[in-house]
């Protein structure tokens, strides 16, 4: 079981240390490395789609 709270705190700590400018690159690295560690491309892609929700850019309903 992943201790989600520990992960949550560690991410917040890294983001505070790195600052806003480095945050996108850091999170992009995290996403790639975690996806790689997961070893399941289908699940990784589903997580990406899930995380892209509710962030402003709405998916095209025609798609």
């Amino acid at each position: 079981m992943t201790d989600t709270e520990t992960l949550y705190e560690a991410l917040a700590g890294h983001l505070d240390t790195l600052g806003q400018d480095a945050a996108p690159l850091f999170l992009a690295k995290v996403a790639l490395a975690m996806g790689h560690a997961l070893g399941d491309t289908g699940r990784a892609l589903a997580i990406l789609d899930d995380c892209a929700q509710d962030l402003g850019a709405q998916p095209d309903p025609a798609q």
């Binding site: 690159l25 992009a28 690295k29």
Partner: peptide, 16 residues
């Protein structure tokens, strides 16, 4: 951004 992420990871991880 993703290109830089891959290159930055590649410093320590050959798969990247």
């Amino acid at each position: 951004l993703m290109r830089d992420a891959a290159l930055s990871l590649a410093l320590h991880h050959p798969w990247a």
